[in-house]
Design a protein around this nucleic acid. Structure first.
Lengths: 229, 229
DNA sequence: TAAATAGTGTCTCTGAGACACTATTCA
DNA sequence: TGAATAGTGTCTCAGAGACACTATTTA
C-alpha cells in the first residue's frame, strides 16, 4: 500500500461483486400437488452447467457489469436467464461477505429478492427445458455458496412485507377477490397467519372496492372485486 | 470478455468497496443545549483532511481490506479513527451503488449503522481535537457522497428497532430506571413516540426487575432498577 | 407539609380472532 | 331446496393511551 496521504483506489483490494436473486412466487393451489386449496410460496432455481457442479441447483445470479446498477444487474439476469421483462422491482437483502464463500477468489454477493406472478413464470420455466424449476421454499435442497441463507432471508423479508400490506409483490392482477388475496397471503405466511375469516376483515381496510361487477364463479355467490389501495 | 464457458472472475469489473458507518448515540439532556430534560439522537462525524475537501464533515468510512469481513472493517474504522473497542455490533443497512457517487472511480459503499453509548463517545470526541463531532441527526449539514441518505436510513432502521425492543442498542448500562430508558427511547423516536406515562406500562413488559435496591435520586421516590430481558 | 419524582389503577378505544349468521348463486 | 361459496354481525380479549390517583423521599 502507498504511503499515507498518497493512497488511491488502486491501493485497496477490489473484490468481484456477484448479484444473486431469490425470485419468489406463489404456486396456485392446482400446482402444489397437495390436493387442497392452498397456495405455496416457491423460489426459482437454475440448473448449473459449469464443470463438476453440473446438475446442482442454485439461485439466479450474475456478476455486476461495468457501469451497471445493482437493480440493473438483477433485471439483466432475469432477462437473460429467465426471459422476464424489466417491470420488476428488486429489493436488496444484504451483502454476503464470507471470505471463503467462493473458492475462485474474494466475491461479495449482494443478495436480492423479487416477486414475480406465477402466471409469468410458468411459461418461462416450461420453455427452459429443465434449466429452471420452481420449488417450495421449504424444499430447496442443497445449493451452492450461501444460497440457502439467501432464500431464508428473502422469505423472512417477504413475510414481513405481506404481514403489513396487501399483496405488495403484486402477484395478483389489478383486481381480485378476497379469496384470491387470502390464498396468496396464506401461502406467503406459510399457512400460519390466521383463518380466512379473520383475514377478510383485516384485508378490506387495506383495499378499495373495484368498480367492476362481482365475478361469477362456478357455484355460489359471486365475489366482489377489490384493488390495492 | 472471454468466450462463453471460459469466463473467470477476472473478466468482470471489480469495484472498490467502501464501508461507511453511521455511529449513532443519544446525547444526554445536559449535553443537548436545549435546557429541557430530553435527550437527542446524534451521529458521529469526521472532519475530512484530504485536499480541497478539507473542512467538510463526513461519516466514518474506510475501504474493505484484503481478507476482511464487512463487520471487521467497521470495527477497524471505529478502532483506528475513533479509538473505540471491538465490542460493537455493526448492522448493515444496504449497498449504495450510484455509478457516479465517487469521482475517483466505481466505488460501492456498504453502509452500516452502529450504536455506541454517549459515555464512551464523549472522551473520544474530546480527545480528537476537532477531528470528530457529534451532531443531532436533524442538523448534519452538507456531507459528501450519499452520506446524508445513509444517515436517513440509519435513523429509520434505528427507530424501527427501538419501537420494538427495549434499548436494543445497549446505550444504557446493565441496569437502569424507567425514566432513563424513556429518555433514550424518546430521543431515538424524535420526541414523537408517546408520553412517559404510556411508555412505562409498555416498557415494563419488555424488562425484568433488577435485584438491586431502588436507586436514590436527589429528591423524590427512589426509582426501581430494571434490566433488558 | 410542600415539592418532586416514581409508580399504579381505571377508563376508553381500537384491532384481532372466533364463530355464528345471512346472502347469492347453481344444480 | 340443498350445496357451495361470499360476506356480515357480534362477542370477547388484549394492547395502548389518557389521566387521575397513590407512594416515597428530601427540604
Amino acid at each position: 500500500m502507498a504511503k499515507k496521504g498518497k493512497r488511491t483506489l488502486q491501493d485497496y483490494p477490489r473484490p468481484s461483486v456477484a448479484v444473486d436473486t431469490a425470485v419468489l412466487t406463489v404456486l396456485p393451489p392446482e400446482r402444489t400437488g397437495r390436493g387442497d386449496d392452498r397456495g405455496e410460496l416457491a423460489v426459482l432455481q437454475v440448473r448449473r452447467t459449469g464443470g463438476h457442479k453440473r446438475g446442482e441447483w442454485s439461485l439466479l445470479g450474475t456478476f455486476l457489469h461495468e457501469g451497471e446498477l445493482l437493480a440493473g444487474s438483477v433485471a439483466r439476469s432475469l432477462r437473460e436467464k429467465a426471459g422476464l421483462g424489466d417491470d420488476v422491482v428488486p429489493r436488496q437483502l444484504r451483502v454476503f461477505d464470507a471470505v471463503e464463500r467462493d473458492t475462485r477468489g474474494r466475491v461479495l454477493s449482494v443478495a436480492h429478492k423479487v416477486w414475480v406472478p406465477h402466471a409469468r413464470l410458468a411459461p418461462v420455466v416450461e420453455a427452459a427445458d429443465g434449466g429452471l424449476r420452481l420449488v417450495p421454499v421449504g424444499e430447496v435442497g442443497p445449493m451452492p455458496f450461501d444460497h440457502p441463507e439467501i432464500v431464508a432471508e428473502a422469505v423472512a423479508q417477504g413475510r414481513a412485507e405481506y404481514a403489513k400490506r396487501a399483496d405488495p409483490g403484486r402477484l395478483l392482477p389489478g383486481s381480485f377477490t378476497l379469496h384470491e388475496l387470502w390464498v396468496v397471503h396464506d401461502a406467503v405466511a406459510g399457512h400460519f397467519d390466521s383463518t380466512e375469516d379473520a383475514f377478510r376483515l383485516r384485508a378490506v381496510r387495506l383495499l378499495e372496492p373495484s368498480p367492476e361487477p362481482p365475478r361469477k364463479l362456478d357455484v355460489g355467490r359471486p365475489a366482489k372485486l377489490y384493488r390495492r389501495r
